[in-house]
Amino acid sequence: MTRKVVLYTLAIGFALYLVVPFYWIVNMSFMHEADAASVPPHFLPDNPTPENYLSFANPSAKEALVGSNAVADTPYAVLNSLVVAFSTAVVNLVLGTFAAYSFSRIRFRGSQVLLIVYLLTRMVPGIAIIIPFYLVMRTLDLLDTYGALILSYTTFALPITIWILKDYFRTVPRELEDAARVDRCGWFRMMWTVFLPISAPGLVAAAIFSFMTAWNEFMFALFMTSTISSQTIPVIAANFATDVETQVTLMAAAGVLAVVPPLVLVLICQRLIVQGMAAGSVKG
């Protein structure tokens, strides 16, 4: 019985811890500006209004008050973030699958060093590489395009993707591959029809990880982009922090918009994420 009490107390405590901060900005996003600054605060909007969200669709109404284009840019920034994060996830899975397969199935010289080198590239802070990276992107004529961001984030996420996938691939029974081979399947065909479908949880976990890496990143997004044709939501959110005549309710609404798409995604894939990560822990 005490066990139950402890369990439920902890569960409720954690639920509050996780939700209350986010609830606060959701709450504010439905307020009028005057209510948001009231003392004591309203923990529920007195007369809720969708006005802040509507102003993203119709920014001209707010333009008189808002100095920068952040409001008009927000919906496009969410769209850019989606495109970039989704593409990053796909590119990562393709590149990661090949590499991870080699680590999970083939014994080869230098595999250990290679794995560490992959990981090492993640230990160098972004600021160290941002300027030469900018130069590379400029040389490739990719500045201010999705390409620059997708490539950046691919390199960020790829090492961890490979680690996640190699662990999951190792749990796939070898017999399945052998069976496919007996059927004279080519390697690509075998991967596509047998191996990858079985590895779905690992692939989903890796994809979500890459997606989040891309969705959340700020500094490279700031430096590799210059216009709304590629700026992502963290860049625009930062504008709200410093430049816009602070309408906190508007900022809160932009913050909520920045959270909802990935949140929906992880909620859908919730079960597969844990399952996909679990593979690594089954080890000898």
Binding site: A15, L18, F218
Partner: peptide
């Protein structure tokens, strides 16, 4: 719920 903070960019 536990996944919620993951979806939040550091700036936000």
């Amino acid at each position: 719920l536990v996944l919620l903070p993951w979806a939040m960019p550091g700036v936000v």
